[in-house]
Design a protein around this nucleic acid. Structure first.
Lengths: 156, 156
DNA sequence: CAGTGCAGGGTTATAAGATAACATAATTAG
DNA sequence: CTAATTATGTTATCTTATAACCCTGCACTG
């Protein structure tokens, strides 16, 4: 995805990409699911980006020469999201690799409207929303908290 | 928008539609903006629905006979959202009239995946997210909290 | 009460995001 | 080895949203 400004964009690429992929593969096979090429490729692209990426940008980046087609990428994304490896950021129509080891956690993001970066933050804060929901007789299954604003680099 | 189940859907239509429209008009002119026909019509439709409505459903409902075209509705929605009269619910790609009198508040919703209803809940809970953001050196401008799950009617 | 400037709206076209439906290939179970 | 299952490839299409342009009518100026 194009950046929106000239500020230095924090590049959150994991220092050990391979290790992250290995963890994902293991988590997947532990869950009795197959770790296939498109799933790995999409996850790898998201890890490398270290920032929210749009589905169509994943298609372009998927393979040199020929781009992947929508269902390939969307199916992989759906799978990865199911496994908690990827979050969809609804307010951006974008997807981001998840650092957490917890398979089933709330998604909470600080999203910079200037540089396009996003930081996943401590989801514990969000559990109070769960409590609020319960108070309304509502059974929560997924919680998404998206804070839009300016990151530390971009406020200056 | 089509309902997803046979449960009784809480119909949150305000008992005094006209009063709500009057309040909106006043708020708008106080802000030095024009309260025009498409803005009123879109807001009215959302108030009547009392639930999240998709943009293209608003176009269909806009006027008998001929449907409104996308820019008409999207422009009205953008305006209304700016004034805090309407919230966009990103995870649904839908829009909902806002009850609050506070022009600039966080959006927090309990969204039922079964009947399609949504309830806006006390945004105070969300301010802790603001604090979390600040702790990261992040300047928050808008906060959206979307809890997906089952409402009281639909858990049964 | 003109004249004029500009915000708002109508219209057409198209971009961006996501899914449906069906055919084919790969994996696993029996 | 074969059948059943799961995943991928492919084409087409649907949904959601915006761009660009022109015209109208209100609202301020003098």
């Amino acid at each position: 995805m194009a950046t929106h400004c000239d500020h230095a964009v924090a590049h959150d690429e994991p220092h050990d990409l391979q290790a992250a992929l290995d963890r994902a593969r293991e988590r997947c096979s532990t869950g009795g699911q197959r770790w296939t090429a498109p799933r790995e490729r999409v996850y790898e692209l998201l890890l490398k980006a270290g920032a929210p990426v749009k589905a169509y940008d994943l298609m372009d980046a998927y393979q040199e020469g020929r781009a992947a087609k929508p269902p390939t990428v969307y199916r992989a994304l759906e799978f990865l999201e199911h496994f908690g490896l990827v979050h969809r950021i609804a307010s951006l129509n974008a997807y981001m690799a998840c650092g957490s080891d917890d398979e089933d956690h709330a998604a909470a993001f600080l999203i910079c409207d200037c540089c396009g970066s996003a930081e996943e933050f401590e989801p514990g804060r969000v559990t109070s929303a769960s409590a609020a929901a319960a108070a309304h007789g509502f059974k929560a299954r997924a919680i998404a908290l998206e804070v839009r604003g300016l990151c530390q680099q971009c406020v200056h």
